[in-house]
Design a protein around this nucleic acid. Structure first.
Lengths: 305, 305
DNA sequence: TTTTTAATATAAGTTAAACTTATGGATAAA
DNA sequence: TTTATCCATAAGTTTAACTTATATTAAAAA
């Protein structure tokens, strides 16, 4: 076997850098650091004793030898991808790794997963919580459900729904404070949650046409929406929340939406996955189920109360 | 980029194992351990979630999927090798790594290398000594000069010469012991050197037609032939040595060959290198010089005194 | 039939490669 | 001129690739 193939791992960085003629863009595509790309290209050039890139200001242009090698590497990689496709298409049965934010996971998704398991017992869903948008192309994660406006152009993005965001409080708070108009809301403790897709109370006051006098209001900041909702259910104040995470509680009478005023625009929830994933069959099973669950819960793409 | 290409490094082991349908043969070809091959194949199978080999007694037969992937991998690797060939042929100038035994290196090769450097100043020769036959295909070593009969079928082997092996001693020893016939040799201390291509005194006695009475003889065992030769020059006994390593000393009168009796067959010295090496131009410069040096020293392929 | 040999599988540990963060230098853009 | 962007490099960290040791199993030899 050709001993130069010992350094075959370096060719991934080469292919990405050659495609972009930029190490940092290559690094982004591969989800590694620019320095790693730089070092790997240097190593490859040393192993082969061939200069593959030439610096042009900030750009790294391919040498003619670099272009030649790029052609061969791209063809070889295409063959390998095709070979993988021929031997593998994962069956529907197996593991599926799902990533989403902590609040959506704990309040909405996980409590419903028993229904998915009942319908698809051969698929094992593993839920990974993260505050960030995780890379579903270059990690072992298969599907992301993200709130907020960030999208990842390298994978398939599907808007699941745009959820209205409004204040919620306990029924007791309304009774004890005789809460009847938006102007009175400033007299209660306002709860602000950090985390993905954070909402702005300023935004809500603007929409409601009420002046927000911060210095005279009582604030409570919590690190997750779940904590905010728990505080509200304990009677402790008013919290802004997306409908999907509180609708069950409102239906059950544990929470109340005191005013029919929503933040505009609402909160986007997006589904992301890699269309080239060998687990595509499994991903699509999950995706169909998820959309059905949302429809059953009366949650559609642009739901305005 | 296809995320499955992250595990491209595993494909080397796969290709070798698929070729041999044997992990240990693959390990030998790749100059790594069987356990490494086993673990890499297992890792690849897990990553792809495809069974590539099936156990058949001691053999590892390819599954049909394994055969499919083998075809693609072999084609891809051929493309990569061709790509490397197109962009690289190392110039004559550069580093050349040469491996040989300690005695040949120190006594013969290194003292002559100044002549190589004078003729080819752009080639830097680095000499690595080793008691074993090193792999010049799967290491950074480019050329091996080996004594003994072991050859490496994976690379080019060229017999340089077959050197006669005979006893040598100091002129003083002959004078002090009135050494005049082979039968008297047993009265002197016999020096035996370990190391590559070790020679047998039994063999010499057989050739000389003299009975060897081990229990009545005085033995000294040293770990390198160089040490043996140094002891002999100090007057300490008689040592078997190949001609190339002692001919200069005999010519200079520092050593004597007391009897014109050589061990049969003599000692093979073989040149080994990888014909696919990108340093082939450099290797061939060295090879031509080496053969010329041997010829100038009157050493040819089958030299019988 | 028993014993020995040969081959792979696995665990634990080690080494080397692949990565990160931090920082500097150079160029391009404001 | 200053700021921003990009790659290069050093030092350190993490992970993958390797090793050695040992167990298991099947094949070959006695």
């Amino acid at each position: 076997m050709d001993k130069r193939l010992r350094h075959i791992g370096l060719l991934r960085c080469f292919a990405a850098a050659a495609k972009h003629q930029s190490y940092s863009d290559a690094a982004e595509e591969l989800a590694i650091s620019q320095a790693a790309v730089s070092q790997q290209i240097r190593s490859l050039e040393q192993q082969l004793m061939v200069k593959l890139f030439k610096r042009n200001g900030r750009a790294m242009l391919l040498t003619s030898q670099g272009k030649t090698l790029q052609d061969y590497v791209n063809k070889a990689f295409s063959l390998l991808s095709e070979g993988f496709d021929r031997v593998q298409v994962e069956p529907e049965a197996g593991v599926l790794n799902v990533t989403t934010g902590l609040s959506f996971a704990s309040i909405w998704l996980v409590p419903r997963l028993w229904r998915f398991s009942a319908l698809h017992p051969s698929v094992t869903v593993k839920v990974f919580v993260s505050a960030e948008l995780e890379n579903v192309k270059h990690s072992e994660l298969d599907v992301a459900i993200r709130q907020g406006d960030k999208i990842d152009h390298t994978v398939y993005n599907e808007l699941l729904f745009t959820d209205p965001v409004f204040p919620v409080c306990s029924p007791n708070l309304i009774k004890n404070n005789n809460l009847s108009s938006p102007q009175q809301i400033g007299c209660c403790q306002l709860i602000e949650a950090s985390g993905p897709g954070r909402f702005s109370w300023q935004n809500w006051f603007d929409t409601a046409g009420v002046a927000m006098q911060s210095s005279q209001m009582s604030w409570l900041e919590v690190s997750t929406l779940e904590m905010g909702i728990n505080a509200v259910m304990a009677g402790q104040g008013i919290c802004l929340a997306p409908k999907c995470l509180v609708s069950d509680l409102i239906t059950n009478g544990l929470l109340v939406k005191p005013f029919n005023i929503n933040i505009e625009p609402g909160q986007n929830f997006t589904l992301l996955y890699d269309q080239d994933s060998p687990r595509l069959a499994r991903i699509q099973i999950f995706s169909r189920w998820l959309k059905q669950e949302l429809a059953d819960a009366g949650i559609t793409k642009a739901l305005l109360d």
